[in-house]
Design a protein around this nucleic acid. Structure first.
Length: 504
RNA sequence: CGGGGCAUAGCGCAGCCUGGUAGCGCGCUUCGUUCGGGACGAAGAGGUCGCAGGUUCAAAUCCUGUUGCCCCGACCA
């Protein structure tokens, strides 16, 4: 980065959005591509964010009665085959294990040997293998509901990858539940969708549109799929989480049966729901600016970083001691019910370099403490959601007393900003002409469109044509207006109120 | 899987057309001067030029093959 650049990230969002995204990840040291095609390496700062996401979601899953378990990475090929739609959906992108060992070939190079009787696939998702186990575990209605979650990696052999948003291997959680009745399974599906929506909104400060997917966008094998959709700063939609009502499809294929209280053998009703490391991508594209990553305080691995300013050797020790003491005091404060995460950066680096490093990493509050502050018992601090030059001075004790409020304010500002952005790029569309005009705006550095709400008849063939013609898809049928029955802007038939957007 | 591009120091690139001692910027190390801020100077470390063959007295450079990456399409919970 050149010293006279106006922004820490180059290019800026408006110059080249896709490249800006890559550069933010690089500048914040979140992740990088690996020697393995399509796979990413998540670096400590990026992984710490994922750990924050995990911790909070795990807490919410436990709160709603779920327990964690772990199922095999490998799935016998025959399992995938049991559910017809499921095969169609995933067969094209499966990594397949066919051998059990390596041997030296004639030229001394290793070759696979010991062919397996039945090839194994690396899980692209675990419905089939978990279904097999559920069938063992469930005999009676007393065994239900079965509420299981798994934190795991999955592999989907993608053609084109982007860090966090689409990689061949990614980390996620997949909840899998079995219930005695359809109503209960549907309630579970909706409940977990709600957990995701609330988490995204409150914890990630990322507003989402909660709704049901159309038939064309449904999870392979599901009866209904629901999603949360967030608007990124290029106005495209990111599917940030999904929750599926699987009906009895997987119970039938995996034979998950139970004896009801009336002594009748019935198939269980199952659900599955997941979010992945894609959320980190969503986080980046929701809040970050042309100076790099911007983290909401809830998710920031460090919420406050203290930068000692030590211009003279004589005052150095006193400054460092004051920084440590301030850090200790700040750690007594809480945010979101947890002690503040505070770090003192004593690295022997030049001030500007250090400051910009933390700006690019997105730490919510930076504090600078120097000898002059010591004399005045003051602190100088900057909020990441404001400009890099926006310094505030206050006396030390009132800063400590107000720091939690300050973090809350940052969280609220980020959310408000994201919501305002989404709303200002969302329109109601009443006709096909308006639809065309909205999405036909000339692409400017990859930024165009937005969310278009419209009546749509949900005919899968028409949806497909629209996708081909405009590269726009129905993101979902928002639950908030699910009872409305507007006429379709394309056909005039009765339809649903849907949100259209270009999608990741 | 189709079309195009690229592969040379940790990162970004030049050199290739016209074969002849492997270079530049950033970063890194040391020293010095600076420093309430993305500094300056000096001295250093670091590369079998993606890989495998071929042509040649001589290959980063020419030829053939191969692998990987990027972009555009197609595909995509």
């Amino acid at each position: 980065m050149s010293a006279n650049a106006k922004t820490a990230i180059s290019p800026t969002r408006s110059e080249d959005y896709a490249e800006w995204y890559q550069q933010v990840i690089k500048a914040a040291d979140l992740a990088e591509t690996s020697p393995v095609r399509g796979c990413m390496v998540i670096k400590p700062w990026g992984y710490a964010i994922w750990e924050r996401i995990q911790a909070e979601l795990d807490r919410r899953f436990k709160e709603t009665g779920h327990v964690n378990a772990y199922f095999p990475l490998f799935i016998p090929m025959s399992f995938l085959q049991k559910e017809a739609d499921h095969v169609d959906g995933f067969a094209k992108e499966c990594a397949v294990v066919t051998h059990s060992r390596l041997e030296a070939g004639p030229d001394g190079k290793l070759v696979p040997a010991g062919p397996l009787e039945e090839p194994l696939i690396v899980r692209p998702t675990s419905e089939t293998i978990i279904g097999e186990l559920f069938a063992r575990w469930v005999q009676s209605y007393r065994d239900l509901p079965l509420l299981i979650n798994q934190w795991a990696n999955v592999v989907r052999w993608e053609m084109r990858t982007r860090l966090f948003l689409r990689t061949a291997e990614f980390l996620w959680q997949e909840g899998h539940t079995a219930h005695a009745t359809a109503a209960e399974a549907m309630e579970e599906t909706r409940k977990m969708l709600g957990v995701y929506a609330d988490f995204a909104d409150k914890y990630m400060a990322m507003p989402v549109v909660v709704g049901e997917k159309t038939a064309g966008e449904r999870f392979p094998g599901a009866v209904n799929t629901f999603s949360i959709e967030a608007m990124m700063q290029d106005r495209r939609a990111l599917q940030a989480g999904t929750s599926h009502f699987l009906g009895q499809n997987f119970s039938r294929s995996s034979n998950i049966k139970f004896l009801s209280s009336e002594g009748v053998e019935e198939l269980a009703w199952t659900t599955s729901w997941g979010v992945s490391t894609r959320l980190v991508g969503g986080l980046i594209m929701t809040h970050s600016d042309d100076d790099g990553l911007v983290l909401p305080p809830t998710l920031a691995p460090s919420q406050v970083v203290i930068l000692p300013v030590t211009p003279k050797e004589e005052t150095r020790d006193a400054v460092l001691a004051a920084c440590d003491q301030l850090a200790a005091e700040l750690r007594q404060q809480t945010f979101g019910g947890e002690p503040l995460r505070v770090q003192v950066d004593k690295r022997d680096l030049r001030g500007g370099e250090k400051t910009w490093g933390w700006i690019k990493k997105g730490v919510p509050i930076r504090i600078e403490i120097g000898p002059r502050d010591l004399e005045k018992d003051a602190v100088c601090f900057c909020r990441r959601d404001r400009g890099a030059k926006d310094k505030q001075f206050t006396d030390r004790s009132s800063f400590v007393a107000a720091v939690s409020k300050e973090l809350e304010s940052i969280q609220a500002c980020l959310h408000a900003r994201a919501l305002a952005f989404r709303d200002s790029n969302s329109v109601e569309v009443g006709s096909e002409e308006e639809f065309k005009a909205f999405f036909a705006q000339p692409a400017d550095a990859g930024i165009h469109g937005g969310f278009a709400y419209a009546g749509f008849c949900c005919d899968p063939e028409l949806e497909d044509q629209i996708a081909k013609a405009y590269k726009v898809t129905v993101r979902n049928i928002p639950l908030a207006t699910a009872d409305e029955t507007p006429t379709c802007i394309f056909t005039g038939k009765p339809g649903r109120r849907v949100v259209f957007a270009k999608a990741y």
